[in-house]
Amino acid sequence: MTETSTSDTAERVGLVCPACSPDVETVHEVLADGGRATVRCTECGHVHKEELPEQRTVEREVVVSQDGDSFSSTVEAPAAETVAVGEEFLLETDEAIMTVRITSVELDEGRAEEAAVEDARTLWTRAVGNVTVDATVHPKEGTHDETRSVSLQVPGDYEFVVGETDDLAGEEFTVEGIHLREDAVGYEFDKLDHDGDSALAKDINRVYARDESTSAWSAW
C-alpha cells in the first residue's frame, strides 16, 4: 500500500500569510480545523491560526427517477464543488432521505458529464438506495415451461454473482448473466457472464437466470 502524505490529503484554502504575503492570498494547507484553524502557507511553510472563510453554497434542483416515476427536489451544496455523472449523494426530501446517483448534469448550454455546482442548473438522478431489478428467468432443463420475467425489489448494494443461487421474494434461481446500466462505473464490460462475475443491484439493467424453484409453475 502506498502511503499518502498529509500535504496530499489536506484541505487547501486561499489566505494571506503574515510571514511572506500579508496583502495577497496564497494557498494554505489546513492542518487542524475548528474555531480558528491551524494552517500552513505552501509558499514559505509558515504555520499560523486563521478564521477560515465560509464556503458559499447554492441551491440546485434535483430530479429523481425511481421505478419509472420521477419527482423534483432541491439540494444545498458548496458552489465550487464539482459534481459528475456516476457520483452518489444523500438527498433529503419531505418524504424521506434517499441515496441518489447523478445520471446527467444540466447546464444553461446543455448537458455535461461533469461541472461545478455553481454552473449546474439541474442534477438529474436515479434513486439507488432501494431498486427494482428486472430478471429474465429461464425454465429448468428438461421442462416445458416458458421463459418469464420477474421484478425483484432489493437494496441497491445487494450483490448478484454469476454462478450463484439467489432466493428472493419466493424466487429461487441461479444467475447466468448480468447486463449493466449505462451509468454503472468500475466494470470492465457491460455484460457479465463468467462464473464469479458480480455486480451491485443499483448497477444492473437486467439479470438472466435459470429457475431453481422446487415447485412447478405455469405461465398461465
Rank of each mutant, 00 (worst) to 15 (best):
V85W: 00
D145E: 15
V137T: 07
T122W: 04
Y158I: 10
G156N: 13
V58F: 05
S149P: 00
D108Q: 12
A112V: 06
W124P: 00
E43A: 14
G142Q: 13
V58M: 08
E106C: 09
H46D: 13
Q66M: 15
V75R: 05
A77G: 02
W124E: 14
G110C: 01
F71C: 11
E81H: 10
L52T: 05
T103R: 09
A84W: 09
Q153F: 04
G45F: 04
A79M: 10
R121C: 08
L90V: 09
T125F: 08
T147C: 06
Q55G: 14
Q153D: 14
F89M: 13
D167N: 15
G156L: 06
T125D: 07
V154C: 14
D67Q: 07
H144W: 12
A96Q: 14
E54R: 02
V133N: 03
V131C: 14
E109P: 02
V85K: 02
T74S: 14
I97W: 08
V161D: 13
E61K: 11
T82R: 12
A115P: 03
E109Y: 04
R148A: 00
A77S: 08
V100E: 07
A80D: 15
G156D: 05
P139E: 02
E88Q: 06
V63I: 12
V47R: 06
T93D: 13
E92K: 14
S72R: 05
L90W: 12
E81K: 14
G163Q: 12
A116D: 06
E87W: 00
E141P: 06
R60A: 14
Q55M: 15
G163D: 13
A135V: 03
T147I: 15
E50R: 01
V62W: 01
A96C: 11
G163F: 12
E50Q: 13
G142V: 09
L91P: 07
Q66Y: 08
E146K: 11
H48S: 13
I97Y: 08
A84T: 12
P78T: 07
E141A: 07
D166H: 10
L91I: 04
T143A: 11
E51Y: 09
T74L: 04
N130W: 07
G45P: 04
V63R: 08
T57A: 05
E109C: 07
A77C: 06
G156R: 02
